[in-house]
């Protein structure tokens, strides 16, 4: 496991992708800190991170895109499969390597509050709480990107998928706002989701009967629930959507609140998508 971790880390740190990722994040942290903390004399590093989190949307796909798709493309995954290591260890090793790369700019960011404290009063607890939150947000995004990379053989497709997914996650609250808060609108949105589940299932299994059955049953469940208690549906789709809003969870940190539930949320997302990646790799063996 440590061998794979070391190899991956080495290839990130000595390769172009790791350099782009780290340097871009550092530059953006520096730029925003200069603008907000030094130029506008605003003593909050949390605001800086809140602005920089959007940069994650662009740079995380850069390091996650090749994590598994490249292995598949170059057929080096056969080496991984034939090694006496369990797949989950391999996935975790790769994930930790990417997280370590993310830890480099986050580590540097830890110096900022100290530097800022020379010029004014800094709330260290909320500043470092925000840095940790930023790091965990990055970890969650990396896990999602890694999973999407394991789905395809092409780095470009992996990058585009990841960027698209992040963009959707970023906009999800805005999209939810477009849906009327009535019960009927929510019910229709749920039905569309149910149909989408059927579609995804078909894409994964190529089994029309099962996919149609699952999609159909889910739609019927929604219809049934709506008929029983339609008031519960009012505004509920907005709640569901906002729970997917990874980026928006960070806004509490920028207001100086250390939100422990956000940590748990980010860690859960990371764990979930790491498990998904293991499953996706396992599935390849059965292809």
């Amino acid at each position: 496991m440590s061998a794979i971790y070391k190899r991956e880390l080495r290839s990130y740190l000595f390769g172009v992708t790791g350099a782009i990722f780290v340097s871009f994040l550092l530059v953006m942290i520096g730029v925003f800190s200069t603008a907000i903390n030094f130029s506008q004399r605003y003593p909050s590093f949390e605001i800086v991170l809140s602005s920089v989190r959007l940069v994650l949307l662009l740079v995380v796909p850069i390091i996650t895109m090749r994590s598994f798709s490249e292995e598949r493309h170059a057929k080096t995954d056969q080496l991984l499969y034939s090694l006496p290591l369990s797949l989950s260890r391999i996935v975790i090793a790769k994930y930790l390597a990417m997280v370590t790369v993310l830890a480099v700019p986050c580590g540097v960011a830890c110096l900022y509050p100290v530097i800022l404290s020379f010029y004014g009063t800094i709330n260290f607890a909320s500043a470092y709480g925000a840095i940790l939150g930023f790091f965990l947000l990055g970890c969650a995004l990396i896990a999602i990107g890694m999973f999407l990379s394991s789905l395809t053989e092409s780095q470009v497709i992996a990058a585009l998928l990841t960027f698209g997914a992040f963009f959707l996650i970023y906009l999800v609250n805005g999209l939810a706002g477009l849906i009327p808060a009535t019960a009927g609108a929510s019910a229709i949105a749920y039905m569309l989701c149910a149909a989408a589940v059927g579609g995804i299932l078909y894409a994964l299994t190529k089994n029309a009967t099962v996919s149609a059955a699952v999609g159909g049953i889910l739609v019927l469940v929604v219809v049934g629930a709506y008929l029983i208690d339609s008031t519960a549906f009012a505004g509920s789709i907005q709640k569901v959507f906002s729970s997917l809003a990874l980026f928006d969870r960070f806004s509490d940190f920028s207001n100086g609140i250390v939100d422990l539930t956000a940590y748990v949320y980010y860690l859960s997302v990371s764990a979930l998508f790491t498990v998904f990646t293991v499953q996706s790799m396992e599935k390849k063996r059965w292809a």
Binding site: R7, A74, K75, L79, S82
Partner: peptide, 20 residues
């Protein structure tokens, strides 16, 4: 699988090499 793979060395059709 781990016990089984431990005693096997495998060269696939395309050597699984990391070019870097």
């Amino acid at each position: 699988p781990i016990g089984a793979k431990a005693s096997v060395g495998y060269l696939p059709e395309l050597p699984p090499l990391y070019p870097d």
